[in-house]
């Protein structure tokens, strides 16, 4: 799976939790999931668990601490897949 494909999947997974649709329309690696997309912080765990299901990976709590932006999420998934 290419980085672009992972990015697209990540955006698709995050989408149902997003409250700022404008920020989602202009999403980049640097888009902050909580601050820019206005995802509820309690829902970030659901998003990461959805990453686990979608990409068949396992994420530890401490790995998830590094996920602030969409790019961070993509990097984590790439790392877990490698």
């Amino acid at each position: 799976m290419t980085r672009d494909e992972i990015f697209a999947k990540v955006v698709e997974i995050v989408k149902p939790f997003v409250k700022n649709e404008d920020a989602l329309a202009a999403v980049t690696d640097d888009t902050n999931i909580l601050e820019d997309l206005k995802v509820n912080s309690a829902r970030l765990v659901d998003i990461i668990l959805n990453f686990e299901d979608e990409f068949d990976i396992e994420v530890e709590d401490e790995d998830a601490d590094a996920v602030n932006t969409v790019g961070d999420a993509v990097a984590l998934i790439l790392e877990k897949l490698s």
Partner: peptide, 8 residues
């Protein structure tokens, strides 16, 4: 489970 799913 293990990882985050276990915590959840």
């Amino acid at each position: 489970h293990s990882g985050m799913r276990r915590s959840r």
